[in-house]
């Protein structure tokens, strides 16, 4: 199975109900948590299993592939 690309999560703070389910389900061995009891948004997630996104009761979690922030990894424009 291909390894998932690292992602950076963002939270829709207006939708988030601070239920903590994303933190509870996160399989990271070390704490991967923000100051607002959500999954961390200040560092990439290397596992990128996306179960935090899937389990959020209000779909408040979104992700962006880390590679999309790095110009050299972008496909060349015609």
């Amino acid at each position: 199975m291909a390894k998932s690309e690292p992602v950076l999560f963002s939270i829709s703070w207006n939708a988030c109900i601070q239920c903590g389910v994303c933190v509870a389900i996160c399989p990271q061995e070390k704490s991967f948590i923000s100051h607002f009891d959500t999954i961390a948004i200040d560092r990439p997630c290397d596992i990128a299993c996306m179960i935090c996104e899937n389990i959020c009761p209000v779909s408040a979690i979104h992700h962006t592939k880390v590679s999309s922030f790095i110009p050299s990894l972008q496909p060349e424009q015609a």
Partner: peptide
């Protein structure tokens, strides 16, 4: 420290819940 417990993790305990066993509630 509840469902999101971090303390157990620090001590190296196996605290992870399966995706198939954590109910998402509203």
């Amino acid at each position: 420290d509840g469902l999101q417990s971090q303390v157990g993790k620090w001590a190296g305990l196996q605290t992870h819940i399966k995706f198939t066993e954590l109910a998402s509630c509203l």
